[in-house]
Amino acid sequence: MGLFDFLKVKKNTANIAKDRLRIIIAQERSAFGGPDYLPLLRRELLEVIRKYVNVDVDAVKVDLVKEGDHDMLDISVSLPDRASAA
């Protein structure tokens, strides 16, 4: 034991790593503008819609819109014309 070892603060590296990871995840979520489940939700909606209508991959758009204190899910689906669907 060294002379100044009592001055060193022992850090729990696991807690430091966990805190850093939380910060990184929070920054990524804010950078993308929405929760991480939106891409999965978009793919699943596209699969369900394709059971009934032949739509393009870009036909389904899912966004998270903030209005005051509330978050709203905005889902937009571009359906093909009836002439091209037949």
Rank of each mutant, 00 (worst) to 15 (best):
L3Y: 15
F4M: 07
F4R: 04
D5S: 15
K8T: 10
V9H: 00
V9N: 13
V9L: 11
K10P: 11
K10C: 01
N12P: 04
T13A: 05
T13Y: 10
N15Y: 14
R20P: 00
L21R: 13
R22W: 05
R22G: 02
I23K: 12
I23Q: 07
I23E: 14
I24W: 09
A26E: 12
Q27S: 14
Q27M: 10
E28S: 07
R29G: 03
S30Y: 10
S30L: 11
A31Q: 11
F32M: 12
G34T: 06
D36L: 07
Y37L: 10
P39L: 06
P39I: 07
L40R: 12
L41D: 05
L41N: 03
R42K: 07
R42H: 06
R42S: 07
R43I: 12
R43G: 09
R43A: 13
E44Q: 11
L45N: 05
L45R: 02
L45G: 06
L46P: 03
E47Y: 10
R50T: 11
R50Q: 15
R50A: 00
K51H: 05
Y52L: 08
V53Q: 14
V55K: 04
V55I: 14
D56W: 02
D56A: 05
V57D: 15
A59Y: 01
K61H: 02
V62Y: 04
D63Y: 02
L64S: 12
L64M: 08
V65I: 13
K66N: 08
E67W: 03
H70I: 08
H70Y: 14
D71W: 15
M72S: 02
M72T: 05
L73Q: 02
D74P: 04
I75K: 04
S76F: 09
V77K: 01
V77H: 05
P80I: 04
P80K: 04
R82K: 15
S84I: 04
A85P: 01
A86D: 10
